[in-house]
Amino acid sequence: MSVTGPRLQPTLAELSRPGRGGYPVPHPPSDALDRIPAEHRRPAPPGLPELAEPEVVRHFVNLSQLNHAVDTGFYPLGSCTMKYNPKLGEWAARLPGLRPPPPVRAGRGSPRGPSSSSGPSSRPSPRSAAWRRSPSSRRPERRAS
């Protein structure tokens, strides 16, 4: 017999505390939305919960432990074929070529800064992966430094 299950969890709303946490996202310039007319704007941010990352992780890991799954036990659900899912599949579906990652951003510390509004320089910067790996035969020489 299985032992007594783990405890139930509060909801995200119950865990939320005003001013807590928030995943670090680069701050956009303060005028980022000024060009969007007021009638299209949301007057206040959506009422999403405010949590720190450790709480989010614990919440969902604890919730996961309330589930029965093929990886935890026999699941003889007729007509559903709950067989073992080879982990090779998870690896394969996450190959970078099948799930292109976003570029790693230079971030706020970059010389230009994320809110830079200047137009293109005389030559594009060679920092991006795209630049380095462009297969073009017409690729211009790298920036003369």
Partner: peptide
């Protein structure tokens, strides 16, 4: 759904 949090959150930092 849980009860709306709208209006209970902190104001935007900027």
């Amino acid at each position: 759904r849980w009860q709306p949090l709208t209006g209970r959150e902190t104001p935007c930092p900027d």
